[in-house]
Amino acid sequence: MTIEAIPPLANVGAAPLAMQIGPVTSPPAVEQAAGGFGAMLMNGLGAVNAKLENADALVRRFAVDENVPVHHVTMALEEARLSLELAMQVRGRLVEGYRELMNMQL
Rank of each mutant, 00 (worst) to 15 (best):
5 A>H: 12
61 R>E: 12
26 S>Q: 13
9 L>H: 00
105 Q>P: 02
40 M>E: 09
52 L>A: 11
91 R>A: 12
14 A>E: 14
5 A>G: 07
39 A>M: 12
57 A>D: 04
57 A>C: 00
80 A>F: 01
79 E>Y: 01
48 V>A: 12
76 A>I: 04
22 G>Q: 05
87 A>V: 02
17 L>V: 15
55 A>C: 07
41 L>N: 04
40 M>N: 05
76 A>H: 03
44 G>Y: 14
45 L>E: 11
21 I>D: 03
71 H>E: 15
26 S>P: 03
103 N>F: 04
1 M>S: 15
5 A>L: 14
31 E>G: 07
57 A>L: 06
14 A>P: 00
48 V>S: 09
96 E>K: 06
23 P>D: 13
52 L>W: 07
44 G>P: 02
62 F>D: 11
12 V>I: 10
31 E>I: 08
92 G>W: 01
2 T>A: 13
49 N>A: 15
40 M>V: 09
103 N>T: 09
88 M>V: 08
14 A>K: 14
104 M>E: 13
32 Q>S: 09
53 E>I: 12
86 L>V: 13
7 P>N: 01
77 L>G: 13
76 A>C: 05
41 L>P: 00
92 G>E: 06
16 P>E: 02
104 M>N: 07
58 L>A: 01
60 R>E: 11
16 P>L: 00
98 Y>P: 00
64 V>A: 02
43 N>V: 04
61 R>A: 15
49 N>H: 13
3 I>H: 14
96 E>L: 05
15 A>N: 11
92 G>I: 00
71 H>R: 12
16 P>W: 00
66 E>C: 04
15 A>H: 11
102 M>Q: 15
91 R>I: 10
34 A>Y: 04
105 Q>V: 14
47 A>K: 11
78 E>Q: 14
7 P>S: 01
76 A>Q: 03
75 M>N: 13
96 E>Q: 09
38 G>T: 07
49 N>L: 14
9 L>W: 00
76 A>M: 04
